[in-house]
Write a protein that binds this DNA or RNA. Structure first.
Lengths: 114, 114
DNA sequence: GCAAAGTACATTGCATTGCTATGTACTATG
DNA sequence: CATAGTACATAGCAATGCAATGTACTTTGC
């Protein structure tokens, strides 16, 4: 088995939890809806978020009170469900940023030593 | 529910896949065994690796050919199973480093914009 | 001398989560 | 008028971190 096949299994695992972080980071800049989130995240991070990943994830964030949602209908187009980050979401996001920074520094320490 | 409780659920998910990366990074510096890996990783990264996480993980790495293992007995002490990274492991590790770097830059892009 | 803590490996079962596949419904384009 | 795009949703699979538990040997402190 080549390393490409191993990476195919590793990358999704690597993303676990990370996507939650990324979504909250994006929502910190302003409200958005599922489809737009997927597009923008793909543009900015090269990460393609599958819909079967995104919508359950947004429901979890809502269930935990990190975001709130609101349907918005317009004259044209399909109705959109807009998500907005809450104060609990911002508080949690700050802690995630710390964890991310600490972990990144730890990884750098390990890379340096080689 | 407070953000601390949410973090308790998030951190393990955040680590998925990351531990595999961290173990390989450490093994790049030289062979080691389970208990030592757990101690050293805790020292360098502040990450406490549970034994129920570590030993299955090492078996997966071995099954996929990223490491090889060898029992070593000494005059004193419990026998140790030493793990050594393979060329496939090094090849895979290089790709993981790229993924990590790319993702870190993406996160930074998102943080910058806020 | 002996209990407690440390060293060292291992397994079972649970909970969580990313992803594929599939479905619905409306809209814009060629 | 068919194709591609927009937009949300769910069911089921596979992978993995972790608590709990077990075994066995060794060192340390009282």
């Amino acid at each position: 088995m080549g390393s490409d096949k191993i990476m195919e299994r590793w990358v999704p695992q690597f993303r676990k939890g990370l996507l939650e972080f990324i979504i909250l980071l994006r929502l910190q800049q302003g409200h958005s809806y599922g489809y737009e989130l997927a597009m923008q995240i793909k543009d900015v991070t090269m990460i393609e978020v599958a819909e079967g990943t995104l919508y359950p994830l947004l429901n979890r964030l809502k269930r935990d009170g990190l975001v709130v949602s609101e349907w918005q209908t317009a004259d044209v187009g399909t109705p959109r469900k807009y998500y907005q980050i809450t104060s609990l979401g911002l508080e949690t996001l700050a802690k995630m940023k710390n964890t991310w920074t600490e972990t990144h520094n730890s990884i750098l320490n390990l890379v340096m030593q080689s």
